[in-house]
Write a protein that binds this DNA or RNA. Structure first.
Lengths: 116, 116
DNA sequence: CTATAATTTAGACATATGTCGAAGCAGGGA
DNA sequence: TCCCTGCTTCGACATATGTCTAAATTATAG
């Protein structure tokens, strides 16, 4: 009848129907990571020792032109998932943990379907 | 220096660079939820007492035609995020927790940037 | 000041995606 | 049997997205 797990019960998504505006907001965030290249970019940046990566290193990891990588980085940045800064000749990017965490929280404690 | 949280440290995405195929696979899953309508649909289904919802109830919640709702449900279903079945006159849908959990796990224990 | 290297911006183009109206397919009743 | 209701499939269409080439921008080195 009631939930069997020790969870605080239910991801936001399962607790109550998402409002139209919350859905739009979250969908925009999800769109930013719903691309193979951007997922890999995010992973590359997040897993890099030091937490920062030079664009030059990112470009080498793909079979894509620099403008394309730049475009994807901009999408991630606009979504607030990464931050970036120019330092001399190179530009460095790092992840913004709080924003990435929003994605995780959305689905995580889902587990059981609502009623059960 | 080392991570300060009690976390098992780092979501898969931050532990090591995602492989090309893993990224493609996960991006497909994320694409399925990276839409305001589908997010709301998933939330409506997940939060419904009983864990099942009739399509007729879903259609009423949106300013969209039935074919469009049907299309979105198919996308969610193809991604394995929901299951569905016809029972007499009506068709019911429910969420598949394991698949939804994959999304949460991807980002959840991220927290700190890798190196720090 | 000019040349070179690292990124981003701009513009173009092909493909993918969201939405609709019309038609097709069950099931349940008269 | 015939029809009506609920849902899906089909085809069309406008918009969004990913990628490229060419050009602009910013910084360092001669």
């Amino acid at each position: 009848m009631t939930v069997a797990t020790g969870q605080p019960c239910c991801a936001p998504i399962a607790r109550e129907p998402l409002s139209e505006s919350a859905a739009a907001d979250l969908a925009a965030l999800l769109k930013a990571v719903a691309d193979p290249v951007r997922l890999r970019l995010l992973s590359l940046i997040a897993s890099h020792p030091g937490g920062e990566v030079c664009v030059c290193d990112l470009t080498d990891a793909f079979d894509l032109t620099a403008p394309t990588i730049s475009h994807h980085l901009k999408v991630l940045r606009t979504a607030g998932l990464i931050g970036g800064e120019r330092r001399g000749t190179w530009v460095y990017y790092w992840v913004v943990p709080a924003q990435v965490a929003r994605l995780g929280e959305l689905f995580t404690p889902l587990a059981q379907p609502a009623g059960e």
